[in-house]
Nucleic acid binder design. Structure first.
Ligand SMILES: [Zn+2]
Ligand SMILES: [Zn+2]
Length: 915
DNA sequence: AGTTCACTAGTGACCGCT
DNA sequence: AAGCGGTCACTAGTGAAC
């Protein structure tokens, strides 16, 4: 009891023994008794409250105690099933004058906060918490929570319904206090009490923790809190929770609030914030969580368990604490060692567009308890310790993952089904056909063991689905045909029906589309599947088609490629048999594209699914030639891929749109039967997204922003507004590895030639047809540019240009217009278009190549979104791009004579003549 | 004014998948 | 094994109806 202690002894008022409620959950209505003692030198009033007033009877719930007086209080759980580890009890005491007689009244009136004393009492589960050893962050072991948590209902039990036989007729909720005022009649048990504060500090078994709370008025009226004031409920819960970390072990020392906590305005958020921020919530002993701020690592270890000799991984993992909140960590999540909750929190919130607001003072301390109180500071902490939002899977990756899982499930189910059928068939020969492996059996007699090249070996010897041996095990009696029903079954509670499974339907539809496409393809190309169908083995064919559709679901890009190559090979063989054969080696070394290649025309090179119907812009007479061309292309890229794999061991997917090697191969050799994007495609899309990431950044200042903010925008303002986008487009281009492959002259020519077209495309995405105006995220939404701005422009061409623009808007499907990524890809297709001033042959070659790459990527991306319908979008593109050319070609004079040259940014003046 | 109900949002433990 | 997202039980907040 050092004199230096900032805490006055007068604050210690009451003690409870024991400090835990050890409910025996084996009984129907568990009950506990604790003894309260006045350990102050004055008469005190006390009350005992819980955060779950509907589940406990507390008898009595409040009263007075004279100096040193002890008094037993019975706490009954209405039902053992109602126990929850998060139930909390708080014993509050305050100095009461000798005249205070009515305990209800006492707590109803304002109280001298500086004399308020709170003791937290923790419920334990008798079954699981015999030992005082507790987990770092919870007083109740996880098993206890599962053992006692009620299933399927959140309905609170009314005290009047509970019946509580053990409550001896006086049981009440804290609010409805009984009229028993005999507290002062109890005798004092000297043997269990200690009179001094210092001994209290030592006698950890008596007082779990003590804190002087500077609380809101609502907090003072905790009786009402439990049942009435919502706001106070929050405060109450927070106060309760704040105390939580101190309860880690029964040996917790007495902890009090620093004096600074007493000053703030009562009830203001800052008082809570101060408590959160400065309170000694982390006692710094045992395994109690402590933030590891200041350390330049992404993980930290608890001091207590560092040297316990546990050498296994489990032991090591146990040592981890969350870098964000100090709770027990499970491992690395998004680049940082965090707990599960921070992981989930980050995943849910890191990408949210809107910022949280800190209800306190923007400097909340984040620990395992306070982390819930302020999302903003928690998220900031997440970022500050190095969590990476980029590591959260994006849309495509998620879709892919989901599809993959569904496919796998369906695949396995199919395998089970077919094997079940095989068993019923007397004809054993069916077995091999019904196995997914049979897909790989070439109709040309090629067997599994004689693939066209070594390149094919791995996937063939390890097919994606289970082989016969493992498939048999699926027929065990425990195997249920319902075993792959969706995991989101109905739940017992009313909340259970409120699911969020809305997207699953889409996935199923996609799956169906994939299968349809696969079977269509098989028919049109005479694949093994179609032959099977022709043979009347529909089921086997269906399985084969499905398996084909499922290929590429693996995240493994190597397998992706290889699996498709097999089919390609089959298809190629088929094509070769019907059209005049081309030497398989003819395309080996040529990467320049076939002679038929037409730059700047959007035509996905791998238009496989319907080769005769899908040739946009080509007349039927060209179809035959086209098939041949396709054959060349496919064979070439297949062989290139195979050779590359042989040389490199595994595909270097980081090169996709990255260092300029192996782009098209990676993309086009992906899963052409499946609409799912492969890794290379996903990566390429990420690169695109990344390149465009700066386009929408808000504008802080500058002439451009001023122009945007004007209500009446002159042509000069319009030009200045365009300057923003132009500059950002240049930046965007410079982020593209593909762009950087070009010579400086090439770069310049592309930007010069494509700028207006890109601007126009961009303009379309920002164009709101309803209001006939442009809106942009770079400035607040109320600042728009009306389409009528055309009216101020050069009368010679403004109308025709306006019409062209509107035509262009109409030419693009609305769905497409709203798809940021698709628009970005279109802009890249536009950027990588041949321009007059590109003279270098290597530049021209690269431009063609990237144009094809991005065209393919766009198509694949649309396919992944819309399946077969992607064609619909694709079909509108040539016309749209044509319009774009025209718009660009006639735009040079659009601003002529309407702009004050000296006020206009120089960059737009490169593209629009002003005088 | 207080209570109940339906609904929504957020949290965190746990799980399966890759 | 690690690390990801999905799931679900649960808590808490809101607003309408009574
Ligand atoms: Zn955490
Ligand atoms: Zn905060």
């Amino acid at each position: 009891m050092a004199a230096a202690s900032p805490f006055s002894q007068k604050n210690y008022l009451i003690a409870a023994k024991p400090n835990t409620l050890d409910f025996n959950l084996n009984t129907a209505t568990p009950s506990c008794t604790i003894v309260l003692q006045n350990i102050s030198k004055q008469r005190i009033a006390w009350r005992l409250q819980t955060n779950s007033p509907t589940r406990y009877f507390i008898s009595p719930s409040c009263g007075f105690l004279t100096v040193n007086e002890c008094f037993p209080v019975t706490i009954s759980l209405v039902s053992s099933k109602r126990f929850h580890e998060r139930h909390r009890f708080m014993l509050t005491a305050a100095v009461a004058g000798e005249m205070s007689k009515n305990r209800k009244e006492f707590w109803a009136h304002p109280i001298d906060f500086s004399h308020l004393h709170c003791v937290r009492i923790t419920p334990l589960c008798a079954e699981t918490c015999k030992s005082p050893v507790v987990s770092p962050s919870s007083v109740v072991s996880p098993t206890a929570s599962t053992a006692v948590s009620p299933s399927g209902t959140t309905t609170a039990v009314s005290p009047t319904m509970g019946g509580a036989p053990s409550s001896d007729g006086r049981a009440t909720s804290p609010k409805a206090s009984a009229e028993n005022t005999k507290a002062s009649a109890e005798s004092v048990d000297q043997s269990t009490t200690t009179g001094s504060t210092s001994s209290r500090l030592d006698t950890s078994g008596i007082v779990n923790e003590i804190r002087v709370l500077v609380a809101a008025k609502e907090e003072m009226e905790l009786d009402k809190v439990a049942a009435t004031s919502r706001q106070a409920k929050i405060q109450y819960a927070k106060v309760m929770e704040m105390l939580h970390p101190q309860m880690n072990t029964p040996e917790d020392p007495v902890i009090h609030s620093p004096p600074s906590l007493r000053a703030p305005v009562l009830g203001s958020p800052t008082s809570i914030a101060a408590a959160l921020h400065n309170s000694p919530l982390n006692p710094g002993y045992g395994q109690s969580p402590i933030g590891c701020d200041g350390e330049n690592r992404t993980s930290c270890e608890s001091p207590g368990s560092a040297g316990d000799g546990a050498t296994d991984a489990e032991g090591r993992r146990r040592q981890k604490t969350c870098r964000v909140c100090g709770d027990h960590a499970t491992g690395y999540n998004f680049n940082v060692i965090t707990c599960e909750s921070c992981k989930a929190f980050f995943r849910r919130n890191a990408l949210r567009p809107k910022e949280f607001k800190c209800p306190y003072s923007e400097d909340c301390d984040i620990n395992s308890v306070s982390r819930r109180f302020c999302q903003k500071c928690r998220l900031r902490k997440c970022f500050s310790v190095g969590m990476k939002k980029e590591w959260i899977l994006n849309e495509e990756q998620l879709r892919r993952r989901k599809n993959s899982r569904l496919n796998n499930m369906q695949n396995q189910q199919r395998v089970r089904d077919h094997h079940r059928q095989d068993f019923q068939m007397p004809d054993g020969s069916m077995k091999s056909l019904s196995s997914p492996v049979s897909v790989l059996t070439s109709p040309t007699g090629m067997t599994l063991h004689s693939p066209p090249s070594r390149h094919m070996m791995p996937p063939i010897v390890s097919p994606p689905s289970v082989g016969p041996s493992s498939a048999f095990s699926l027929l065990s009696p425990t195997d249920s045909s319902n075993s792959d029903s969706p995991p989101g079954q109905n739940r017992g509670g009313p909340l259970g029906a409120l699911g969020h499974h809305g997207s699953e339907g889409y996935d199923s539809a996609l799956l169906l589309q994939q299968r349809l496409a696969a079977s269509r393809l098989s028919q049109s190309l005479g694949s093994p599947q179609s032959m099977l169908q022709a043979a009347g083995l529909q089921q086997a064919a269906a399985a084969a088609a499905a398996a084909a559709a499922n290929r590429g679901v693996s995240i493994d890009p190597l397998r992706n490629r290889v699996m498709m190559s097999i089919d390609d090979y089959h298809n190629l063989m088929q094509m070769a048999a019907t059209s005049s054969a081309v030497s398989p080696l003819s395309g080996l070394n040529g990467d320049q594209g076939s002679p038929d290649y037409k730059p700047n025309v959007f035509s996905p090179p791998m238009n496989l699914s319907s080769p005769l119907n899908g040739m946009n812009g080509l007349d039927l007479g060209a179809a035959q030639q086209s098939v041949k061309h396709e054959f060349d292309e496919k064979l070439k890229s297949y062989l290139d891929g195979a050779i590359n794999d042989e040389l490199n061991g595994s595909p270097d997917l980081t090169a996709v749109f990255g260092n300029g090697t192996r782009k098209e191969e990676d993309i086009t050799q992906g899963d052409r039967l499946s609409y799912q994007l492969n890794t290379a495609e996903l990566r390429a899309l990420d690169n695109v997204r990344e390149a465009f990431s700066g386009m929408d950044e808000p504008l802080d200042s500058g002439r451009q922003r001023d122009s945007f903010m004007k209500t009446e925008k002159s042509p000069t303002d319009i030009m200045n507004i365009m300057d923003i986008t132009m500059r950002r487009l240049v930046k965007m281009a410079k982020k593209l590895p593909a762009f950087n492959e070009l010579s400086n002259e090439g770069k310049f020519a592309l930007l010069k030639g494509g700028m207006v077209e890109m601007l126009t495309v961009r303009g379309v995405t920002r164009f709101d047809s309803a209001s006939n105006s442009w809106k942009t995220p770079v400035v607040p939404s109320q600042y728009t540019v009306p389409v009528s701005m055309f009216d101020q422009l050069n009368t010679d061409c403004k109308d025709i240009q306006k019409n062209r623009f509107m035509q262009f808007v109409g030419a693009l499907n609305e769905e497409l217009r709203k798809n940021e990524l698709a628009i970005s890809l279109i802009m890249l297709i536009v950027l990588f278009s041949q321009r007059e001033n590109v003279n270098s042959p290597s530049d021209r070659m690269l431009i063609d190549k990237h144009n094809r790459d991005y065209s393919t990527l766009l198509f694949r991306y649309l396919e992944s979104l819309y399946g077969e319908d992607a064609r619909k979008f694709q079909e509108v593109l040539p016309r749209a791009l044509g319009l774009l050319h025209v718009i660009s070609d006639h735009s040079i004079t659009l601003f002529m004579g309407t702009v004050k040259t000296e006020e206009a940014e120089p960059l737009p003046r490169e593209f629009f003549k002003t005088d």
